[in-house]
């Protein structure tokens, strides 16, 4: 049992320090890199929070999609297998479940990497409208 601040809180503290204390005191290329560094900490924070659930779901879907009975196969193993099947033409967009899986994985990646990316926001808004 570790004390607070927890990892996400520590990342937020460093990001805040970089943005509020460092950035105003530097300029040019260095200021740009400080901003990039702060944004990167935010990405780590989102991954820390969101990855466990997303990766567990990805693993379950991949096992199902590939019909894999190998319980020791890692996410990396299964993704390599999936890539190979697509590259060999054994899986394509008509393969049941493939497109759903790719959308799911990609939306989960964007939620960590670039949650404000315009295509993501637009697709989420469209889905919401359709639902309403």
């Amino acid at each position: 049992m570790y004390d607070r601040p927890d990892p996400v809180e520590q990342l937020a503290a460093v990001a805040e320090f970089l943005r509020d204390q460092v950035m105003p005191r530097v300029d040019g290329q260095l200021a740009f890199h400080v901003r990039v560094a702060a944004n990167m900490l935010d990405t780590v924070s989102r991954q820390t929070r969101l990855a466990p659930e997303a990766e567990a779901a990805e693993l379950a879907r991949l096992r199902n999609l590939l019909g894999s009975g190998d319980n020791k196969a890692t996410l990396d193993d299964l993704n390599r297998e999936l890539c190979e099947r697509i590259a060999l033409g054994r899986f394509d967009i008509d393969t049941p479940g493939l497109c759903d899986h790719l959308w799911r994985v990609t939306l989960d990646k964007l939620a960590v990497d670039q949650p404000r990316y315009d295509t993501l926001l637009r697709l989420l808004a469209a889905a919401k409208t359709k639902e309403a």
Binding site: D100, L107, A111, L123, A126, K128
Partner: peptide, 10 residues
């Protein structure tokens, strides 16, 4: 729609 609903953006 069910797919997008499950996505939590932050």
């Amino acid at each position: 729609t069910s797919l997008a609903r499950k996505t939590g953006t932050s």
